[in-house]
Amino acid sequence: MRPEHAEAVLEIYQLGIDQQNATFETTVPTWEAFDAAKLPDHRFVALDDDGQVLGWAAVVPVSDRCAYAGVVEHSVYVHPEARCRGVGLALLTALISSTEAAGIWTIQSGVFPENMASLTLHQRAGFRVIGTRERIGQHNGRWRDVVLIERRSPVID
């Protein structure tokens, strides 16, 4: 993921926000804020043959405490027109390889339980459900549950 992908990445993020089952966020950040928040070595875009961005994945640290140095929270978004084509799995596979190479042992995220496509994708990529955080936050004026998922690396002790 490079600056030249910024417009498409943020557009895909906006499409996820618009569907109201991808994130608690209600507005897309600026590219500068987005870029500053994501770890630079673990962000990816999937491109079609014409160089168009089909989806993206990125991570943020879960904490600045040294005990959590090997734990990240990830996001993966696929353009609606590119879904069901293996884009999400390809992005997660690249993300897993990248994080494991860097010694990161846990990738986690929260997914709205209504987002069955995301939960299915993550299960295919080796994530497991930890549990459901009930009424963890308000989204557009209503309480939402979040399914906590994680992937623990089998190669990092």
Rank of each mutant, 00 (worst) to 15 (best):
M1Y: 13
R2D: 04
P3V: 01
P3A: 03
P3H: 00
P3S: 05
P3C: 03
V9I: 14
Y13Q: 02
Q14T: 03
Q14I: 01
G16F: 01
I17E: 09
I17D: 03
D18S: 10
D18C: 00
D18G: 06
Q20A: 03
Q20R: 15
E25D: 15
E25A: 14
E25V: 05
T26D: 10
T27Y: 03
V28Q: 01
V28I: 04
V28G: 00
P29E: 00
W31F: 15
E32C: 05
A36Y: 07
K38R: 15
K38H: 13
L39W: 07
P40L: 11
P40K: 08
H42W: 15
H42I: 12
R43K: 11
F44D: 06
V45E: 07
A46F: 00
A46V: 00
L47W: 02
L47H: 03
D49T: 04
G51C: 00
G51S: 03
V53H: 02
L54M: 08
L54C: 06
G55I: 00
W56F: 10
V59E: 08
V60F: 06
V60I: 14
P61H: 14
S63Q: 07
S63C: 04
D64N: 10
R65C: 12
R65N: 12
C66K: 14
C66M: 13
A67L: 08
Y68C: 15
G70L: 08
V71A: 09
E73L: 06
S75P: 05
V76R: 06
V76H: 11
V76I: 12
V76A: 09
Y77E: 06
Y77F: 06
H79A: 15
A82V: 01
R85Q: 11
R85C: 07
V87C: 04
G88P: 04
A90T: 05
L91N: 03
L91V: 04
A94L: 00
A94D: 05
A94R: 09
I96H: 12
S97F: 07
S98Y: 06
E100S: 13
A101P: 02
I107G: 07
Q108P: 05
Q108N: 13
S109W: 01
S109N: 14
F112M: 12
F112A: 02
F112G: 09
P113A: 03
P113W: 01
M116N: 10
A117T: 10
S118D: 14
S118C: 15
T120I: 08
L121D: 11
Q123I: 09
Q123F: 01
F127D: 07
V129L: 08
V129A: 02
G131D: 09
G131T: 10
R135Y: 00
R135P: 03
R135E: 12
G137C: 05
G137V: 01
H139P: 08
N140R: 15
R142Y: 03
R142V: 13
R144V: 08
R144D: 04
D145L: 07
V146L: 11
V146W: 02
V146R: 05
V147I: 10
V147F: 04
R151V: 11
V155A: 15
I156P: 07
D157N: 14
